[in-house]
């Protein structure tokens, strides 16, 4: 177990360098110039631009920029500064992350409760009316793109019914986050429901289920303990990777509801060609993702004793 964790942590090192290099390269391949963008439509004289570039180190060859960037990151935990207003990326993320976390936790709770709930209903009534209704519902959600779903919910509940404010305020409270969380968690909810349903329906026919019934256990114990423990294994895997994805913010959802979370900051940085901000942000998110997936893999072994890490 300890060795496995150590190995996984070591594996993160090449992943870390790989992702940073990739993102760095991609950002620099994009057309556009962050310094030029800073001055907007007014523009500036070439000398000022060159001076600014030199100050930011943007006049050096790109491989040097990458090495300097990595050096600062590893030695000083400096993930770079925003070009536009000179704030450290960690500070920007510090502002955005709690909001994203709020949204992610809410979305995750929704997909957990309703996804697994619908999955259980469908799985236990496989092939019958309830199962088919859930199938249609989940198919519908899976096939609607998230920006369409987001706008529909915003139109109906904010503009037509007036139940919610169209935009989330800068200091959001949990109730404001409900509509975006539903939009964000909707797709995963559908996947979780289908995964749970399939897993349950399959395990219902397992030999050990017959044994559990033959032991004279009450139905809710047969289902609640014997069936659920086995059926949740694939669902937990999916939920685990989904946590990582949710932490990374939701560019589209945050944009629709005007939420200033991680997704919003990323979108902003892309449009301003802010390479260092973007690389710093994504690097931190990659680390979050890697750590959550490691935790999920460890949880997996708890759920399924046949899996042993050595």
């Amino acid at each position: 177990m300890g060795r496995y964790v150590a190995r996984r942590l070591l594996q993160m090192i090449p992943v870390f360098f790989g992702t940073t290099l990739l993102i760095f390269a991609m950002v620099h391949l994009l057309p556009g110039d962050p310094v030029l963008a800073m001055f907007g439509d007014k523009g500036a004289d070439p000398a000022t631009l060159a001076a600014k570039r030199h100050e930011l180190g943007l006049d050096k060859p790109e491989w040097q920029q990458y090495l300097f960037y990595m050096r600062d990151m590893i030695l000083h935990l400096d993930f770079g500064t925003q070009i536009r207003n000179g704030r450290p990326v960690t500070e920007v993320l510090g502002d955005a992350f709690p909001i994203t976390l709020q949204l992610a936790v809410l979305a995750f709770a929704i997909e957990l409760v309703f996804g697994i709930g619908l999955g259980i209903i469908g799985g236990l009534r496989a092939g019958r009316l309830a199962d088919n209704l859930i199938l249609i519902f989940t198919l519908l959600i899976i096939s609607i793109p998230v920006f369409v779903l987001g706008y529909i919910i915003k139109m109906v509940f904010a503009f037509n019914l007036g139940w919610i404010a169209p935009n989330v305020s800068t200091e959001p409270v949990l109730s404001e986050m409900l509509a975006p969380a539903i939009v964000l968690g909707g797709l995963s909810l559908a996947y979780v429901a289908r995964l749970t349903r399939t897993s349950m329906a399959e395990n219902l026919r397992a030999d050990y289920m017959r044994t559990a019934v033959a032991k004279g256990l009450p139905r809710r114990r047969v289902i609640g303990v014997h069936l659920m423990r086995n059926s949740m294994i694939p669902v937990v895997t999916f939920l685990g990777t989904d946590i990582g994805a949710l932490m990374g913010g939701a560019v589209v959802t945050e944009f629709i509801f005007n939420i200033h979370g991680v997704g919003g900051v990323i979108a902003e940085s892309i449009s301003r060609r802010e390479g260092s901000t973007l690389v710093g942000l994504v690097t931190i998110l990659v680390i979050v993702y890697l750590v959550t997936s490691l935790l999920i893999d460890l949880l997996y072994a708890v759920l399924d004793p046949r899996i042993r890490y050595a």
Binding site: D207, Y208, R210, T211, V225, R229, N230, D304, P305, R306
Partner: peptide, 15 residues
């Protein structure tokens, strides 16, 4: 009580 044929699949693998 009943004893089943294939004990590996008849016992719950995760308990």
């Amino acid at each position: 009580a009943m004893i089943f044929q294939d004990a590996l699949s008849s016992l719950n693998p995760v308990l």
